[in-house]
């Protein structure tokens, strides 16, 4: 009775697992982690598959062994020989230690060590060593505020765009990241893993995409009431389209100096998906922000955005519906 139920459970698990893995192969699948479109994300995926294969072969076999013991040595029926004294065996002990040690040794070398260098956010060798880029790398300075993203392109007339990232395909993109108020994570599931963005500090990450398209970017770490809305689309376009986009961006009349940035960085929930483009921002804005924050600059949260957000959110919702 009970064993049958266990077997049934196993069956369901197997079915679910296969659907899960098949789901990973479908086109435009919602399984972002199984459907990597960036070099880094793909490497992560490969390492994940190695790890799952090794671990699943051990854990799976162990589970089967346990179920087998459970059936064979059940009281009154199983047919296994009872030996109430037996509690030790050097041979078994050798394997119980040996198998985990071997697995950990292999995984340490094959995935932990190699993977840490291959995907080191500051210098991912999968991008910097192995790829043959088709164009010059593009730099993007990322500033996260409460709760918006600002992407600045210092090589291109210091244009900037908020809440939307545009990058060329087949080209390495190098990010420098910081934040104004609190910590969060920069994350585009199909393209690049998470990296912390922290106020008063600079982190780095890199990206190279080989499929054009639009990919969801997320603020992955909780950073206050607006976290869920702190989204950005990552548009990956051809080099030609990218340059065309740069031209139109440069033509935008809006500009941003530190003073205007100060306004921009005030707590704001982007429920309307606004993606303003700035034709020119103050050169060095990124470092300026870091320095200001290090010297104690803050963008405090007003009380009405904490305990009682009712009024604020209702106002926002009304605007949203209008």
């Amino acid at each position: 009775m009970t064993t049958k139920k266990w077997l049934q459970m196993g069956q369901y698990a197997a079915i679910l697992l296969t659907t899960m893995l098949l789901g990973g192969c479908a086109r435009h699948s919602p399984w972002w982690i199984f459907d990597p479109k960036g070099v880094g994300a793909r490497a992560s995926y490969d390492y994940m598959m190695i790890d799952i294969a090794v671990m699943l072969s051990i854990v799976g076999l162990t589970a089967i062994m346990i179920v087998w013991f459970m059936i064979r040595y059940r009281k009154g029926g199983g047919g296994g020989k009872y030996d109430g004294k037996w509690s030790h065996s050097m041979t078994i002990e050798f394997f119980t230690w040996g198998i985990p040690i071997a697995a950990v040794a292999f995984l340490s070398w094959a995935v932990a060590i190699n993977g840490s260098f291959a995907l080191n956010p500051y210098n991912p060798t999968v991008i910097t060593h192995t790829m043959k880029p088709k164009g010059d790398p593009v730099d993007v300075d990322v500033i996260a505020t409460d709760w918006q993203w600002l992407f600045i392109y210092p090589q291109f007339h210091h244009i900037a765009v908020a809440n939307e990232l545009v990058v060329p395909a087949h080209t390495p993109v190098f990010f420098k990241l910081t934040s104004t108020a609190v910590t969060t994570d920069f994350f585009v599931p199909q393209l690049v893993g998470m990296i912390d963005v922290m106020p008063g500090m600079r982190t780095k990450d890199a990206l190279e995409v080989d499929h054009r398209g639009s990919y969801q970017g997320i603020a992955a770490d909780y950073c206050g009431a607006g976290t869920s809305w702190m989204l950005f689309k990552t548009k990956v376009v051809s080099m030609r389209d990218f340059h065309r986009w740069v031209k139109t961006a440069e033509a935008q009349p809006e500009t941003m100096n530190y003073h205007q940035f100060n306004e921009f960085a005030r707590p704001y929930i982007n429920v309307h998906y606004k993606t303003p483009i700035y034709g020119h921002v103050e050169p060095g804005l990124f470092n300026h922000v870091i320095l200001e924050v290090m010297n104690g600059k803050k963008w405090p949260l007003p009380m009405f955005m904490t305990e009682n957000m009712y009024a604020y959110l209702q106002k926002q919702a009304k605007e949203h519906r209008a």
């Binding site: 982690i33 994300a41 490497a43 992560s44 995926y45 390492y47 994940m48 790890d51 995984l107 995935v111 932990a112 993977g115 840490s116 291959a118 995907l119 956010p121 599931p189 893993g193 998470m194 990296i195």
Partner: peptide
């Protein structure tokens, strides 16, 4: 526990 996977 593997950084390369953990990032994702």
């Amino acid at each position: 526990s593997i950084p390369a996977i953990n990032y994702m």
